[in-house]
Nucleic acid binder design. Structure first.
Lengths: 110, 110
DNA sequence: TATACTCGGTTACATTAAGTAACTAAGTAT
DNA sequence: ATACTTAGTTACTTAATGTAACCGAGTATA
């Protein structure tokens, strides 16, 4: 036997969500449609390279939508599809768990 | 400004959960305490090397407990702490999302 | 009309993480 | 003695990320 016993759809969901940066990008997009640089600035340490990779992957999964506004200069907006917004409860549970079980970090000297 | 605007505890939770294999290992342990090889067999494609790394990390986070039973031969059991079991609702939401939004995979020819 | 800056990326290269396979030591079974 | 199990570790390869520079189109500034 070479196959996992787990539900393949559940496994797929975990695979999507546990790819580095994916969750934080989706979480960031939960606050509304926004542009490439905005996401990039919201997640310091996330490089443009990986961000563009992740956005492409998420678009392929149907989680993120990329809309081009033909203004001048052109404006490109990333947003969540219904499928993407449906991930919100997962983040809600993560937030609950973290506030219950993770320690409050030390404050930096003022 | 070099810091993220997100809650650091939320970010930490995402960091823990989105490390490769971590979620699946915790999910597997939700079914009860078990031994190293059992987890290893339940997750094909997961090597003993990475499994032992992840179990150490999860133990440090206080999510997994490692108990040595001094039988002969010695038996080592991994299980979830309260903190670890408290992750269950997150997996519940992931399962819900995946069954609602991910396609049912094709069956293999019988 | 240079110069610099923004946006939405891409490219080349360095570092880190993960996969693969072999191996170990202690114990058990044949 | 030989082979197998458990709970790992070690050495080596390959894939994923991080870092930094760069690009073309357009805009603003001097």
């Amino acid at each position: 036997m070479d196959q996992s016993q787990m539900c393949p759809r559940f496994e797929k969901a975990v695979e999507i969500l546990s790819k580095r940066w994916t969750s934080l990008i989706v979480f960031q997009l939960l606050s509304g449609p926004q542009r490439f640089v905005n996401i990039d600035h919201a997640l310091p340490n996330l490089s443009g390279k990986v961000l563009s990779e992740r956005l492409k992957e998420l678009e392929l999964e149907g989680i993120v939508k990329r809309v081009v506004f033909p203004e001048s200069p052109v404006r490109i907006e990333y947003s969540l599809s219904d499928k993407g917004r449906a991930l919100a409860p997962i983040f809600g549970e993560i937030a609950k768990w973290s506030s219950e079980w993770l320690p409050v970090p030390d404050e930096v000297a003022p």
